[in-house]
């Protein structure tokens, strides 16, 4: 019953965004999910042409590391190698990375699907890099910047949000990082311990929302 109401509410939310309104900035955006909420389902096209769906693609995993990122943002680029490392470390332990590009290529041409295919090939991404063309996934999660990470764990009721925020505390210099937030969160989940902190912030690029 609750889930039905949630679905209706989400459907209403999406319907609202389907109307020809202009999303102008942060204050007008929905809040998205909080830690402890069920992670919204998504079905998005991967760079290899396949469809990646949270509930199906990751059905046999313990969780997932959802990273909203893109091709053009210098902060996303700074973090690319660290995103690859996260997947290499935690993918085999049941927490693979899925990278989602939410940017409108009309606003930011470098973030086109073709650009994604090229980038994934260049960097040798072993994880899905999917295109949130409608931007509904970014809106449902409440992603506001790139990179913006949501760590999920799989439970009986579905995927649950365990951590929201930054990859670590130093985008400029990986050697000077003192808190590896995402890695710590995933390690805590694997060990059955409490995730702490569950929410952090970071400087990043705004998501390039559709102009109309």
């Amino acid at each position: 019953m609750t889930r039905t109401i949630t679905s209706i509410a989400l459907a209403a939310l999406f319907a609202a965004f389907a109307l020809p309104i202009t999303i102008v900035g942060g204050a007008d955006l929905p809040d998205g999910v909080r830690v402890g909420d069920l992670a919204p389902e998504f079905r998005l096209k991967n760079v290899d042409g396949s469809i990646v769906a949270l509930s199906q693609t990751f059905a046999n995993q313990k969780g997932a590391i959802v990273v909203f990122t893109c091709n053009h943002c210098p902060y996303s680029v700074k973090y690319e190698d660290r995103i690859i490392e996260l997947h290499d470390t935690f993918g085999p332990q049941g927490y693979p990375v899925v990278a989602i590009n939410p940017n409108d290529p009309i606003v930011q041409p470098e973030d086109s699907f073709e650009g994604m295919v090229e980038r994934a090939k260049e960097k040798g991404f072993k994880f899905p890099y999917v295109f949130d063309e409608s931007q509904k996934t970014a809106l449902s999660y409440g992603a506001r910047r790139t990179p913006h990470v949501f760590v999920l764990s799989k439970q009986k009721k579905g995927f649950v949000v365990e951590y929201i925020g930054a990859i670590d505390d130093n985008p400029n210099d990986q050697a000077a990082v003192s808190a590896t937030y995402v890695a710590n969160a995933v390690r805590a989940l694997i060990a059955g311990q409490k995730v702490e902190p569950t929410f952090t912030k970071a400087i990043g690029c705004t998501i390039k929302w559709k102009k109309s």
């Binding site: 942060g26 204050a27 910047r145 925020g165 930054a166 990043g204 690029c205 998501i207």
Partner: peptide
């Protein structure tokens, strides 16, 4: 300042950290 996660909220609690702001 160092770690932005420590000072972004001090500017404004509604700031996600995205720029421009």
């Amino acid at each position: 300042d160092g770690n932005p996660s420590k000072w972004i909220d001090a500017v404004d609690t509604t700031w996600s950290g995205a720029i421009p702001a």
